[in-house]
Design a protein around this nucleic acid. Structure first.
Lengths: 153, 153
DNA sequence: ATACGTGCAAAGCCTTTGCAGGTGA
DNA sequence: TCACCTGCAAAGGCTTTGCACGTAT
């Protein structure tokens, strides 16, 4: 798998070892492209295969992987950090998030629209964009329907 | 001041009292449009005029004001919540943020570009956007210059 | 041998909550 | 009076750190 070897390479370049714990955590994310796991969720999943992994290891690993650009940290407004695999480094398009404020599900969408905006920020404001983050909060289709269905009653 | 009376009205509609502490906190934000204060910063500022205000009051107040749409909660990636006055309710344009990853300064910009995107999300995905949030991370003009100046050395 | 990694427990932030006392309508 | 507010202290989450013990090179 091309993604895997790229991940390994980046670990080596960072002079870091590929331990079983790290490998498992990386696989977790590779198996779930587009999922946004909290440290605790990662911990639970890892434990299913490896009983005595500590939270500290999970935190240290996701921090490491984020520094190596293998993961990306996201924060929705629930106060806890979440992580997703950085597919951009694997030549995928950047994506953004739609957070349903009723069911808390997170959907994604692709968008290139921001490129022109970033150019403008550089020209007009001298701000050189390295990364961006776009989130929509609202109601997803299902929740929207439920709400409509309830109105007649 | 038109903004003030609108704020008072919203407090009353929420059946809430305008205590000295609350008034001070609101004024803090009105005096600093476009600043993003953490609870602790608010606490320090409030204390300059009112020695014995507790953190709990600050937290309870910003939570209340956020529910009343007087403030808006934002989270940059430093783990703590920040608050800014919601000028939209005072008929100002929505704005977004550019966070400089070197000096941590936060600049703002206006943007309407997202409207068409929101329309598309509704049509194509059934997602009804209520709120959105766009952040750019990068280097501001000053930090960018410093970096360029250092290269020759 | 030596630097790196790990689990555990403790400590550190930021934030929320319980409570007894105070305050405004 | 009575619901609302407050400060204080304690408790709650999430996250980081110290430490002694492993482990790969």
């Amino acid at each position: 798998m091309a993604q895997m070897s790229s991940v390994y390479r980046r670990l080596e370049e960072g002079a870091k070892r590929l331990t079983p714990q790290r490998e498992l955590i990386i696989k977790l994310f590779l198996d779930r492209p587009g999922q946004h796991l909290s440290a605790e969720e990662v911990h639970q999943l890892v434990r299913q295969e490896f009983r005595d992994v500590g939270m500290a290891t999970v935190y240290r690993t996701v921090e490491l992987l984020t520094k190596l650009d293998i993961l990306r940290q996201i924060r929705f407004n629930d106060g806890r950090a979440r992580y997703e695999i950085n597919l951009e480094a694997a030549n995928m398009h950047r994506h953004h998030h739609m957070v349903c404020v009723r069911c808390n599900r997170v959907e994604e969408f692709q968008e290139d629209l921001l490129d022109q905006l970033e150019d403008r920020l550089l020209r007009e404001r001298g701000f050189r964009v390295a990364d961006h983050e776009l989130k929509f909060y609202g109601t997803c289709r299902q929740c929207d329907r439920k709400q409509s269905n309830m109105k007649p009653s």
